[in-house]
């Protein structure tokens, strides 16, 4: 009986307590500088530095004036911070005959990315839903063809698509490029949506059918509200993919519709005059800003979406 009291109430008998408390107690101590920690953190810090260094050089250079850039110390911070290169990159850098900077390319890219993303996701999600839940005749064949499409190199398809668009009178227009982006996004997005919808409980779909809901009612009222995470994933994929696209943009549009990436290339690679490294760096960061922001903003949302889906009973 005495021992029980001691165990439950340590202050009761100081003598016994010291004896009991002598051994290990509580959380096991882990030294900060254990070999394990040094390996893990060392490798992580090295990898992070390796990837961040170019970004650092770009930011630093873009904030310098040309005299300072010519000194050649690419790692040194700017002595005199100037935003001149950023302003020039955005509004007055020259590409060929136009001297209105990247801003035009930016708005072109916005006009390409937003409709392409919306159209491709809308169609692909319906494709995926039909393939996952409405097992129509030939569904497997259709799906296989679509997946094979994902493995055909872009280069093979470019010329035929040029001809098709020319015959449709869409070659060189933004509409044509939006159609091309939507088609190229279809295989991977359909696969994504089909797998997601297949992972939703089949009985929900059956219950909705017993309740009398049809194809569209089930899609809009049952499936869509449960699929926010996968829509975020698809949006990240499409926005970054289409924004970063260069090949399709340069092939299927005329110079006045060039997306930002193509225009960036034209600014950076222009052979006339001095190479303005500070402007080039600023232009590059501006072009990469959109995918970066998308990752930072929706990446978090995306993880939260996945987690929310995982714990739902």
């Amino acid at each position: 009986m005495a021992e029980v009291v001691t165990l439950n109430n340590p202050s009761a008998k100081a003598g016994t307590v010291t004896k009991l408390a002598a051994g290990p107690k509580g959380k096991k101590p882990r030294p900060m500088l254990s070999p394990r920690n040094i390996m893990i953190y060392g490798a992580l810090i090295f990898a992070a530095a390796y990837y961040l260094l170019p970004l650092y050089v770009m930011v630093v250079t873009s904030l310098k004036g040309m005299p300072e850039v010519r000194l050649g110390n690419i790692f040194s911070p700017p002595l005199e911070i100037t935003f001149e290169p950023w302003v020039k990159a955005w509004s007055s850098a020259c590409t060929g005959l136009n001297c209105d900077g990247l801003s035009r390319g930016f708005w072109n890219s916005v006009r390409i990315t937003i409709p392409s993303t919306i159209v491709s996701i809308a169609i692909a999600s319906i494709n995926g839903y039909a393939l996952a839940n409405w097992r129509f005749k030939g569904a497997d064949l259709f799906f296989t063809i679509l997946i094979v499409g994902a493995f055909i190199p872009y280069q093979v398809m470019i010329y035929p698509i040029v001809i098709v668009l020319r015959e449709m009178g869409l070659y060189g227009s933004l509409t044509g490029l939006i159609i091309v982006h939507s088609i190229f996004g279809m295989p991977i997005l359909t696969l994504l949506f089909r797998n997601y919808f297949s992972s939703l409980p089949e009985e929900l779909f059956k219950a909705a059918r017993v309740d009398g809901a049809g194809f569209w009612t089930i899609y809009f009222k049952i499936m869509l509200p449960m699929s926010l995470p996968i829509f975020v994933v698809a949006m990240i994929l499409q926005i970054t993919g289409i924004w970063n696209d260069f090949l399709l943009g340069v092939v299927f549009t005329r110079p006045e519709y060039y997306p930002m990436t193509v225009q960036l290339n034209n600014i950076v690679n222009s052979v006339q005059g001095v190479k303005e490294y500070n402007v080039n760096m600023a232009a590059t960061i501006l072009t990469g800003a959109v995918p970066l922001i998308v990752y930072f903003v929706s990446g978090r949302l995306f993880v939260r979406g996945i987690a929310a889906g995982a714990v739902k009973g």
Binding site: L204, K206, K312
Partner: peptide
């Protein structure tokens, strides 16, 4: 019909 997994619309 009543299903094993309840199949209630979660939203």
């Amino acid at each position: 019909m009543v299903f094993q997994s309840y199949a209630l619309y979660p939203q």
